[in-house]
Design a protein around this nucleic acid. Structure first.
Length: 370
DNA sequence: CTCTAGAGGTCGCTATGCCG
DNA sequence: CGGCATAGCGACCTCTAGAG
């Protein structure tokens, strides 16, 4: 038990990634109409540091949201000079880091400076002690009190710890909530996540998927990309993207295809152990191939369910049986070598110039239009 | 108009540590 | 000790602004 706690603490340390306001703005501007009259809940983060809270508090009236709720988590670290800290009435907040719940029902010109903005939210937090309240527990998204708040919410927006992504998303599914969250692009290949994408219950957001995102990390972080104008360490996480079950326009638009299979058959090797062709770049998906095609996971970012049907994943442990065969007897001798590279029996493979090649995780798709 | 450097974007792949 | 998943990394391609 004590061992478990230690392990978890160690794991949690790697989850100290704080989303930058510009990244939140870049993504959220596409969903404006979907937030009207909604109860928005930002959890698994910390209102003292959170740019999510800051974003929704600043744009409360612009988005026309009904209510904003944010809870903090006691495990969250203090990031030095980071972001705007509010002096909150009735809560020993900043230094003690007590887990709290903030509820904003409306934003008016409380400080009578002639404008309605974030300073009015600060004023509210300073002068109205009903705005922020201590939580009983740690503020963990799995705790009873946080689940009760979740029930009241319409849309959850957050950057949950990647290590808890599975648990986090299954909780949102279980409670049938709308959400817009940041996750690891590799999560596409998680069994549970993939099943949701396949059923069109989950899709990626607007922010470019391949570049990754830049997060504020603690001062003692060694692997950082640069230091910003406020002295914050910024790290690049190339495998991060937004996941949502809100509407995303690009996923209703066709991916433009221009290559043909007929005449270029040699560029599309057939898998040795599956009845389909290998398409190693999304841009090379042929316009005229009727059967199964294996494409890189980056395809998911451009997927329109009206255009393509997702059949499954080309890895053996995807949870969906698409009929991938074991190694052919004559290729068994390459097995050890392949396994060294992380592949196992049941993963797709091709032969290239007499050499066994196992592509990175592939999404198996089929064109619906032909 | 051509060339090129740098930024932007795409995607393959492997070292690492956990877990059973 | 092998299976397995991964809050990275880097090679390489593409685009574009600006110089000549």
């Amino acid at each position: 038990m004590a061992h478990d706690t230690l392990k978890n603490a160690n794991k949690a340390k790697k989850d100290e990634f704080y989303t930058q306001l510009t990244d939140i703005e870049k993504e959220l501007r596409h969903y404006k109409d979907q937030f009207k009259d909604k109860v928005v809940y930002c959890n698994a983060d910390d209102p003292f540091e959170s740019n999510f809270f800051k974003y929704f508090a600043s744009n409360f009236n612009l988005l026309g949201i009904k209510k904003l709720i944010a809870t903090s988590y006691s495990g969250s670290p203090i990031l030095g000079t980071q972001i705007s800290l509010f002096d909150i009435q009735g809560v020993k907040a900043e230094k003690e880091k007590e887990p709290i719940k903030i509820v904003i029902n409306e934003v008016k010109d409380y400080n009578k400076d002639g404008a309605i903005d974030i300073s009015d939210v600060e004023y509210l937090l300073k002068h109205d002690k009903n705005t922020a309240k201590k939580l009983k527990g740690s503020g963990d998204f799995r705790s009873n009190e946080c689940v009760e708040i979740l029930k009241e919410a319409d849309i959850v927006v957050s950057n949950p710890p990647f290590s808890l992504f599975r648990e986090y998303i299954s909780q949102l599914e279980e409670h049938n909530k709308k959400f817009l969250i940041i996750g690891n692009t590799n999560a596409i290949t998680y069994k549970e996540t993939f099943a949701l994408i396949k059923d069109n219950k989950l899709r990626t957001g607007y922010t470019n998927f391949n570049v990754g995102m830049f997060f504020v990390v603690p001062d003692d972080w060694e692997k950082y990309h640069h230091i910003d104008e406020n002295g914050n360490k910024i790290a690049r996480v190339s495998t991060s993207c937004w996941f949502t079950n809100l509407q995303v326009k690009k996923h209703t638009e066709d991916l433009i295809l221009y290559k043909t299979y007929i005449g270029n058959e040699d560029q599309y090797p057939k898998y040795e152990n599956f009845n389909g062709i290998e398409v190693s770049r999304v841009a090379d998906i042929p316009i005229d191939y009727k059967g199964f095609m294996g494409v890189p996971i980056t395809f998911i970012d451009k997927h329109n369910p009206e255009q393509f049907e997702i059949i499954g994943l080309g890895i053996s442990n995807s949870g969906i049986d698409i009929g991938v065969q074991p190694y052919k007897p004559e290729h068994k001798k390459y097995r050890k070598e392949i396994q060294k590279r992380g592949a196992v029996d049941g993963d797709l493979y091709i032969m290239e110039n007499g050499i066994v090649k196992v592509p990175y995780a592939r999404i198996i798709i089929k064109n619906k239009r032909i």
